[in-house]
């Protein structure tokens, strides 16, 4: 396992895709950071920092997942601010966003890569 800021970071397997119910998230610990991994109804996966920048707590994986227009999002369980699963941007205030991570599914296994 390598961990630097400049070199490509390897993907870390965190769970099976089946471990995540469609339209929910789970929290994973990736290189010491709490990452919220979401699965949408069409089996796409997204990874965001689990930390809600408004509520200052590590909770986003526990939010409700839905769509606003075409954009899949998670509503923070604290005060319901919506964050795009694709970009991490707060849909009500583009000046605020949470970090996103590379994430993929290989052989049914969800893997989280570098912070984007």
């Amino acid at each position: 396992m390598t961990e630097t800021q400049t070199q490509p970071v390897t993907y870390i397997a965190v769970c099976r895709l089946d471990d995540i119910d469609p339209e929910t998230g789970i929290a994973a610990l990736v290189r010491g950071e709490a990452v919220a991994v979401f699965r949408t109804v069409d089996d796409r996966v997204f990874a965001l920092s689990n930390f809600d920048p408004y509520g200052h707590a590590s909770v986003l994986a526990r939010g409700i997942v839905g769509t606003r227009g075409e954009v899949p999002f998670v509503a923070s369980p604290l005060l319901k601010q919506p964050f795009s699963l694709e970009t991490g941007e707060c849909l009500d205030d583009p000046s605020v966003s949470v970090a996103t991570y590379e994430v993929d599914v290989v052989d049914g296994e969800v893997r989280v890569g570098a912070r984007r």
């Binding site: 339209e23 949408t40 109804v41 939010g63 409700i64 997942v65 839905g66 769509t67 606003r68 227009g69 899949p72 999002f73 509503a75 319901k80 919506p82």
Partner: peptide, 10 residues
């Protein structure tokens, strides 16, 4: 339409 949200789902 769509996949719902934090209003309609609860």
């Amino acid at each position: 339409t769509g996949r719902g949200c934090d209003l309609c789902k609860p």
